[in-house]
Each structure stands twice: as structure tokens, then as C-alpha cells.
Design a binder for these strands. Structure first.
Length: 385
RNA sequence: GGACGGGUGGGUGAGUGGCUAAAACCAGCAGACUGUAAAUCUGCCGCUCCUUGCGGGCUACGGAGGUUCGAAUCCUCCCCCGUCCA
């Protein structure tokens, strides 16, 4: 299977129903991608991910490069084989670590010098190095190395990062092209010859820069485009505004991916911007911190009111956790610091995000996305459980 | 019967004259978490009053007295607990 994207339906809101084909399977879009930074979606086995219907998940260049090392993963046949995951994988480039490890790095036009968060050692990540690592990992979709900036960032700063991101995107694409043309066998370069590379729109919260960024990247002709640098502290309305502006500039026949979003109630908003893919650590991280997403809003399972509550976590959820366990039990596990708390909470939260995306797809198919969104968001926003 | 050691807020446990409503940790209560340096982080955690403030009052370091301007801290007696010796 080679990379292929097909828009099956576009509804009046701009939302798209689609189908993304990768070397490791077909992905129904709009899709939610659980984050598995270090070769694991924390708290969930690959078998569980499969049973939950996960079609694509994320891995991280920076983390896997540091540990266990991309050459080791290459030698073991690539990330799919290494982690025994038959589905699709998208790898982030390390660009987000430019943002999240701000205290541990130095940026130049060449690339970024990181001090490892594991042992303090220095490492240079460049666009070329990032692609080299992602080729070794053999993800189905690699991301260009980008500069993700903080919020707020003034026009000059956002512009600088946007230009650097465009230049780095060009270098990523050129590196991959040169590798392919080099005559070396594919296996020596990449554990996944069918890998595609997506570019990343930046530009901070400045509409003109978002448009300019998108146009620059479209000129470079990538098979898919991400919109990055969102959900970094700005109001949600600004976030969707930026996503919509960028999406307008992107080709209709290529997948659009908003990186790092979002809350369940925010997902329909991005979809209505014409976004096809999203990822977020919220379901797994919050699960480990006792914050559970339900059809009636967020539940902090630590709260004393659940101590004797025999009801399932979410009466409208049909996941294994909600079919099997009570709130009282989930609270007990969390309070007792039991490993199973993280496992069950993660299972439910990921199931809830996937289920939400499934409902969104169904609503698009039925032409009812607007109605679904307002009902869904009102119910979740009520926060009653 | 004797010799030591010890009794501190829900727990463990610092503190040996004022900066102490009393460290720290745990437990408890609540909040946060958006391309994962996160099974993490933050706040509260004696009672009470109000014009909610680096605010007032009360109670508190086994018990009762005492010394002192001032005591969880020093003295006396008593009550418990532990170890050892008879």
C-alpha cells in the first residue's frame, strides 16, 4: 500500500470525511491519534489499542533517538516491528521539544542543540538528522523538523520561526529526496520505503503569517500538511481561527493535521475547520492523573463523592472499563496508587476520544455535524455526572 | 524494686527558652494538565469570628504544679510506653 488520501465528503461547515491509506493500513478521517511518545501509549498494550480500533498512533523522534536509539530500532527492523504494532505510525520530528524543552536547548538556523533530559548530554538535531532518525524508525508519516514557539509571541518572533520552519521543511524534503536518489538500498536508509513527510504550518497567532506559512509550504508540495504551534496557551477561539485560516490555504486533496489538540469538546471545532487528523496527550496523561473524560463532562475520579458510587464511570460509554467497573472501584484503585488505575483510566479516556471521533465521522456522513457538535458540547460543558 | 530511653497536630517524626499553630514526609481534601522531562504539578490541611486580612479570638506538644517578661523546650511530682538489671 502506498500513501493515498481521499476526501469522501465535505459538508457545508467545511468538515471532511476521508480515508487515508498508508503502508500500515487505512485510517478513517477525521482521526484521533493517541500519543505513544516512547514506543508505547502509556498504560495501554498494543493489543488493547487494536481492540479499541486505533488505526494510527504517534511516536517521537527525540525520545526514541535518545533511548533506545534509532540505530538500534533500525537494526531491529523499525518501530512497527520493534513495538509490535501493525497499524500506522506518525512520528513527530522533535519540533515540539524545541518548545517544551525550552530550558534545555539552543536554536540556530542549522538546527537545535538539546541537552538530554535523561543524562544532560548534548545532541544536535537538524532537519536532516530528524528525517534520518524517522527513516530509521520507519514511520508511515514523518514530520518535518519545525520551530514551535510559545504564546504569546510577537509578529517578529513568529515570523522568524515561521521562516525557519519553512526553510527546515525544504531541507527535510531535499534530504529525503537525495537519499532516495543516492542508489543505496532502501533498507539501509529507511525501514519503511513508503514513508511520507508532512510539512508544518507555523506563524503564531498572526493570521498573515499563518497564510504565508501555508503558502510557502504548499509551494514545496508535500503529501500532507500539519498546523502546529496551537494549543500552547491561547484562547480556544484563537486556536480554531488560526487553524481555519491555515486550512483555507492548504490543498483540498491533502490531509490536514492539527498537532497536539485537544479537549473532547474542542475536537468538533477543529473538524469544522476542515481538519482531518489530530493527536493529543490529554486522554493518557489526564488518565494517569485521575481526570476522566465522559459524555457528561470531566470526572476527577479522586473526588470523595465517588468513594461509594456503584455506577459505571460513564453510563453512555460502552468501553470495557465502563462495562465492567464501578466509580468506587476506579477511585479506590487511584487512591491506592495501583497500576491498574492508570491502565483502566487510560483505556477509558482513549476509548472516549476515539468514540467521539467516530461520532463526528458519522455525523458528517449524515450531514448532522452542526447539530451533533452543539449537543455534544452542551452536554460535556454542563459538567454534570 | 532499680537503671536508662521516650511520650509533639490523623500517622511517622523534627524542634531543646522568644523568629512555633509548630519543619519534613505520609494520609486526607480540592484544582490543574492540549505535537508527553508528567503514575506529574499546585493549593488547603487545630477550632472559630469577621469589615477575608502578611486580620481577631480560642485551644494545642502525656497530666498537674512551678521558674521566667516569655515554656513543646528549664524544674518538681504524677501517669503511661520501651529496653536492660534484679
Amino acid at each position: 500500500m502506498n500513501f493515498h488520501f481521499e476526501v469522501l465528503k465535505t459538508d457545508p461547515t467545511g468538515a471532511r470525511l476521508g480515508r487515508l491509506t498508508t503502508p500500515h493500513g487505512v485510517i478513517d478521517t477525521p482521526a484521533f491519534m493517541p500519543v505513544g511518545t516512547a514506543g508505547t501509549v502509556k498504560g495501554l498494550t498494543q493489543q488493547a489499542l487494536g481492540e479499541l480500533g486505533v488505526q494510527i498512533l504517534l511516536g517521537n523522534t527525540y525520545h526514541l533517538y535518545l533511548r533506545p536509539g534509532h540505530e538500534r530500532i533500525r537494526a531491529l527492523g523499525g518501530l512497527h516491528k520493534f513495538m509490535s504494532w501493525p497499524g500506522a505510525i506518525l512520528t513527530d520530528s522533535g519540533g515540539f521539544q524545541v518548545f517544551s524543552l525550552a530550558d534545555l536547548r539552543k536554536i540556530s538556523d542549522d538546527g537545535v542543540v538539546f541537552r538530554s533530559h535523561l543524562d544532560g548530554s548534548e545532541h544536535l538535531l537538524t532537519p536532516e538528522k530528524s528525517i534520518e532518525i524517522q527513516q530509521a524508525l520507519g514511520s508511515d508519516i514523518a514530520m518535518v523538523f519545525d520551530e514551535c514557539i510559545e504564546y504569546p509571541a510577537d509578529h517578529a518572533r513568529a515570523s522568524g520561526a515561521m521562516k525557519r520552519t519553512a526553510e527546515w521543511a525544504r531541507r527535510c524534503k531535499e534530504y529525503a529526496r537525495a537519499q532516495t536518489a543516492s542508489g543505496q538500498t532502501n533498507a539501509a536508509l529507511s525501514t519503511n520505503p513508503g514513508q511520507s513527510i508532512f510539512a508544518i504550518v507555523q506563524g503564531g497567532m498572526h493570521a498573515d503569517l499563518r497564510r504565508e506559512s501555508a503558502r510557502q509550504l504548499v509551494d514545496l508540495n508535500f503529501p500532507g500538511y500539519a498546523i502546529g504551534g496551537l494549543a500552547v496557551g491561547e484562547p480556544h477561539a484563537i486556536s480554531t481561527e488560526m487553524a481555519a485560516i491555515a486550512a483555507e490555504e492548504l490543498p483540498k486533496d491533502r490531509p490536514r493535521y492539527v498537532m497536539g489538540v485537544g479537549l473532547p469538546e474542542q475536537l468538533p471545532d477543529y473538524v469544522r475547520c476542515g481538519v482531518d487528523m489530530m493527536d493529543c496527550v490529554l486522554p493518557t496523561r489526564n488518565a494517569r492523573n485521575g481526570c476522566l473524560f465522559t459524555s457528561a463532562g470531566r470526572v476527577n475520579i479522586r473526588n470523595a463523592i465517588y468513594a461509594s458510587d456503584p455506577r459505571p464511570l460513564d453510563e453512555r460509554c460502552s468501553c470495557m472499563v465502563c462495562r465492567t467497573y464501578s466509580r468506587a472501584y476506579l477511585r479506590h484503585l487511584f487512591q491506592a496508587n495501583e497500576i491498574l488505575a492508570s491502565i483502566l483510566n487510560s483505556h477509558h479516556n482513549v476509548a472516549f476520544f476515539l468514540d467521539t471521533m467516530g461520532k463526528i465521522r458519522q455525523a458528517i456522513a449524515l450531514g448532522e455535524l452542526a447539530a451533533f457538535s452543539s449537543e455534544f458540547q452542551a452536554r460535556i460543558g454542563a459538567g454534570e455526572s
